[in-house]
Design a protein around this nucleic acid. Structure first.
Lengths: 228, 228
DNA sequence: ACAACAATGTACGAAATGGTACGTTCAGTC
DNA sequence: GACTGAACGTACCATTTCGTACATTGTTGT
């Protein structure tokens, strides 16, 4: 928002210069991401962010108006990074079964490797998604995810390897839920049930189970609902 | 911890009295629950809790030593309330299939009806489960949950209606994940995918899908994992 | 009735914290 | 080389916020 950047000179040209606004902004954003994801919007301290930055507190307010605006920028940057990685997945040339299982495994692993992102989303939910709602950027970034999944699912239904009648959005919901919870609740779950959930072997097991669960869900077969 | 209660007189006896420590404590705890679950540990303000209470700020520090201690007490109270409700579920006299689906539906609905609890657990996870780890009470409360599920699962395996080789803890993990995510991420998910997730009809659908998904997972049949 | 202790109200202190005023340096332009 | 606006540093202000000191009232045992 307030971030003004002279597009005339790239960061590589900046070598040897004293002023390097772009890298200062990037630095602030990186530190802010760690701080906000670790302590939340109200828990993070601008002074502490400033200390851990090459820049000074003055610069934070110079480039990012507010504490809240800074937080919004970190949220946007985090989503952007995720969607960039997702875009690298080429599912179209894979058979539906394999494409889906690959998508599930990718999502599971990606979330596991990016706890900062997960925590920011948790924090944003604590704030009722108030800041996300202000961001046109994030809204636009996420359309593609459902499209890709819809494509895979429709191909699978045509092939007869997936059952009909599922909503791709709900399918995405299921995949997200399992992958997200694995990171978001690891602390309470591990402690309560005395289970080293983050141990590599258990993570592998969970990844298999989650993939298995999603596959079992989309495979053809009778529903097994026992009415309440 | 600092909560001193004269067990000599019950709250019903307190009618007409000016001093009513037990109800004051309960009131503080109720307000604190709302505040902490809404704004988190660092976001909640002791002054604001005090204002919304019948009591004064002085009383908060009198009965609950700290802000952190107060938070821990609300967390404990929240878990206690949940486990009490869970204990009312009598699954032993039901057939395994029905018992499991009932447990899933109960968990899903319970979480949906108690967002305060979910948010407190989210917040606690943001704090790496640091406070939960201090509480002997919460640790002891949660043993029973797995026991009940283990019982149902083992009966199902004997009957042949469940497949073998599943870990009840992991099964509980799956049920929790889906039910928890439904509440914890409703804001970001709804906004990003423009989907009224909390609408009653969609909640009914999700409840069915979640139940269906769990049942499909435990039902006998070949695994469907496509190796990565 | 009267200690003794529990329960509560009021006002205040000290530190933390978000944000800004003001001044200085850097870098491109004429 | 002077000028201009962007980039940056330092010191500071105003408020918020946790926590406490001190005084007061209620309650119970003897």
């Amino acid at each position: 928002m307030t971030a003004k950047s002279n597009a005339s000179s790239s960061s590589s040209t900046r070598r040897g210069r004293k002023n390097d606004p772009e890298s200062v902004q990037a630095d602030i954003l990186a530190v802010a991401t760690r701080e906000f994801s670790e302590k939340g919007l109200s828990g993070a301290r601008i002074d502490e962010i400033a200390e851990k930055t090459r820049a000074s507190k003055r610069m934070i307010y110079y480039y990012f108006k507010d504490k809240e605006t800074l937080y919004l920028h970190t949220l946007e940057a985090a989503y952007q990074k995720v969607r960039l990685q997702e875009a690298e997945l080429q599912l179209n040339h894979l058979a539906p079964l394999e494409a889906l299982s690959r998508l599930v495994r990718f999502t599971f692993c990606h979330h596991a490797k990016n706890p900062d992102f997960i925590r920011l989303v948790m924090i944003e939910n604590i704030h009722h998604g108030r800041y996300l709602a202000q961001s046109k950027l994030i809204q636009s970034l996420n359309a593609g995810v459902i499209d890709a999944l819809t494509n895979v699912y429709n191909r699978g239904v045509e092939d007869g390897c997936f059952r009909e009648g599922l909503d791709p959005r709900e399918l995405h919901w299921l995949i997200s839920a399992l992958s997200f919870f694995n990171v978001s609740n690891q602390h309470t779950f591990s402690r309560i049930f005395d289970w080293k959930q983050t141990a590599p072997e258990n993570q592998r097991k969970l990844e298999d189970h989650v993939t298995d669960m999603v596959m079992r869900y989309v495979l053809p077969g009778e529903p097994a609902i026992a009415e309440p």
